[in-house]
Design a protein around this nucleic acid. Structure first.
Lengths: 146, 146
DNA sequence: CGCAGATAGATGCATATGCATTTATGTAGA
DNA sequence: TCTACATAAATGCATATGCATCTATCTGCG
């Protein structure tokens, strides 16, 4: 985006492609889910984290750390998913300020229905463009940016 | 996010880290720009593309392809930037439906003021975490996902 | 020419997001 | 205990985004 050289001369290229790649892949996955009449991606992530935390349930602030969402963003996401009947929010006995999130039957079913579509979209958008070895290497390098 | 294996067993890891890395880096860069009292990232990209297209100017649909933004999104982005006095929209003589985008003095100055802050944030968020060689390799791999 | 698309760009309306603040509860120290 | 501060979560308000549609112009074909 600019010719002046920087300490690490490839940082800019990495950044540009990182954005382009993740934007494209995300758009493809979202489009696939929507075309299948399924909820958006962030619903999946939330449902999955809550499902993994069963049977104890999950506090909202804990989910917040896992999903890297801002507090108000998650509060509203949770509100929408709960509105759709996929999760429950029950008051936390140990901490009157908090609540415990858990999947409903419908929530577990929804997550399960999303997975094959999600996985196929991921494979399509990423898996088919890289060999297994390259994918592993790419994942390793990306880990250092996380 | 799920244990069932897929054709390319690393696609899921790539996807997860791709999102996390780009989200984190983007958040850092945006925060740095905002802290410096500068416009957001997408303004920079637009200004820079328009500046590169000088002296001919740039059609909105051409910018749209370069920035990978939806038509209505760019229409509004352009509206905001023009409102701020950083670009001009003049009717296109060859095509009455279109317009030609060009930087104003203030627009060129704004882009120039943003660059060092942007570059430093990029270096901070990416350059310091990878060797030059690794950055080049990473960029090469990402190219296949773009 | 006259009309059927196609294309460039804007916009109304619903939904989502960012930011700051609020409410309620918890914790620690004088 | 009372007070000050910290934390969990929600929300009012402004702004941004997605989607569908609209207007205006262009292009090609009978």
């Amino acid at each position: 985006m600019h010719s002046k050289s920087a300490p690490n001369p490839h940082a800019e290229t990495v950044w540009t492609r990182l954005v382009r790649a993740s934007t494209r892949v995300q758009a493809e996955i979202e489009a696939t889910l929507k075309a299948a009449g399924l909820p958006p991606l962030d619903w999946y992530d939330a449902l999955w984290e809550i499902e993994k935390a069963a049977p104890d349930g999950l506090r909202q602030f804990a989910l917040q750390e896992r999903l890297l969402l801002p507090q108000y963003g998650l509060s509203r996401l949770i509100g929408r998913i709960a509105e759709a009947g996929l999760i429950t929010r029950t008051p936390c006995p140990e901490d009157g300020r908090g609540q415990i999130l858990a999947l409903t039957e419908a929530g577990a079913a929804a997550r399960k229905a999303m997975w094959p579509v999600y996985a196929a979209a991921m494979e399509q958008a990423i898996g088919t463009r890289l060999t297994g070895d390259d994918a592993r290497r790419l994942a390793d390098m990306l880990a250092r940016l996380v």
